[in-house]
Simulated scan of single mutants.
Amino acid sequence: MPNDRFDALRTIVQQMPKAELHIHIEGSLEPELIFALAQRNGVSLPYESVAQLRQAYDFADLQSFLDIYYAGASVLREERDFYDMTMAYLRRAHADNVRHAEIFFDPQTHTARGVPMAAVVGGIFRACQDGPISASLIMCFLRHLSEEEAIATLEEALPFRDKIIGVGLDSSERGHPPEKFMRVFRRCKELGFHLVAHAGEEGPPAYIETALDLLEVERIDHGVRCLEDPRLTERLARERIALTVCPLSNVKLRVFPDMAAHNLPALLAAGLRVTINSDDPAYFGGYLNDNFEAAFAALPLTLAHAEALARNSFGAAFLGAAAKRAHLEEVDAFFSKASHTPTADRTHV
């Protein structure tokens, strides 16, 4: 394909306004910041250098990733650490033309180490208030822990209810089906939280269905295995359930052998409300634009797909009607102009 066509579509996906709905803030901790915070807080790391830590990012599966993820999070001790981490992500997202982010955080990773909930929520929330883009917080429960621990975490977080818009479910899927957390999600719904859950990445399509039916979630995080169940796929399309897909993460964790094998085009062709996100960008090889560029370079995706993905990101966001409308109008204006770019035709780059 001609380079000018590639460059035109790449520029469009870089510059288009977009929302990010699947970002674990602890997973945005770059090795340089990990070392800086370790030094500031007197934390000893099992790595001698930034380069050695980066080498450790060559993990083989979700569990080996989680092991190093939790080790990196150990440097977060004070409210200002959470502020600095979040602000670093928000600035990077702003550079990628992200207009709005819904940020996952894992309080249990920190409170188990004696870090006060106030420091965790306070630092992240304050950065969201000071940052260059709109951002809100979704508190995730670690599914490898018990539901009783999740309920205790919820109670501990309730004094900060006004700073948290939703709850989610993350960590390792295998052996931890959504129904394990029915009671805590029922309580969260009563409290008025938005509800999301990781399902259908390393776990089977059945986990997507139980997350919808038993947890009553509004979005599915990942969800790429839904295509294994045609009936479920049709339901997701019919009910307009958003999937927060993370391409680079899926490849890094061996869900797909390489980007060319990713099922993103098939998900879109099935009429699913797909969004692209970065998941844990410091660990999985890139932030939001990196995910868009990698997907569009390897897969038969077009200008029309780019527009659909941008619109989906705002349509699936937990925003008020006026804010959502304003963002979608910006998307419309952007693509109205982009569609008249001579080399930005509607073919694959």
Results as ranks from 00 to 15, higher is better:
Ser313Leu: 05
Arg346Cys: 11
Lys18Phe: 04
Asp81Gly: 02
Glu155Val: 14
Gln14Ser: 11
Arg54Lys: 15
Ala211Lys: 02
Phe334Ser: 02
Ser74Asp: 12
Ala344Trp: 04
Pro257Gly: 03
Ser313Thr: 07
Phe292Ser: 03
Phe296Gln: 06
Glu293Cys: 09
Leu299Trp: 02
Ala119Asp: 14
Asn41Phe: 06
Gly27Ser: 04
Ala338Lys: 06
Asp170Leu: 14
Ile103Met: 05
Arg80Ala: 05
Phe82Trp: 05
Ile276Gln: 02
Arg186Val: 05
Asn250Pro: 00
Ser49Cys: 08
Gly131Thr: 03
Ala260Pro: 00
Leu195Met: 11
Ala95Gly: 09
Asn41Ala: 06
Ala93Asn: 08
Ala308Glu: 13
Glu330Gly: 01
Pro205Tyr: 09
Gln52Leu: 08
Arg99Asn: 01
Leu76Met: 13
Ala150Asp: 04
Thr347Asp: 07
Asp61Arg: 14
Ile220Val: 13
Ala118Arg: 03
His24Ala: 02
Asp213Met: 12
Thr109Ile: 10
Leu66Phe: 06
Cys246Ile: 01
Ala8Glu: 06
Asp213Trp: 08
Asp258Ala: 10
Ile103Tyr: 03
Glu173Asp: 09
Ile208Asp: 07
Glu179Ala: 09
Ala282Asp: 09
Arg80Phe: 04
Gly42Leu: 05
Gly131His: 03
Ala88Met: 07
His22Ser: 01
Pro300Arg: 11
Val75Ser: 01
Val255Asn: 07
Ala38Cys: 02
Leu191Gln: 11
Arg91Leu: 10
Ala297Ile: 06
Tyr69His: 14
Asn277Arg: 09
Met1Cys: 13
Arg325Asp: 07
Ile124Leu: 06
Thr86Met: 04
Val13Leu: 10
Gln15Glu: 15
Met85Gln: 15
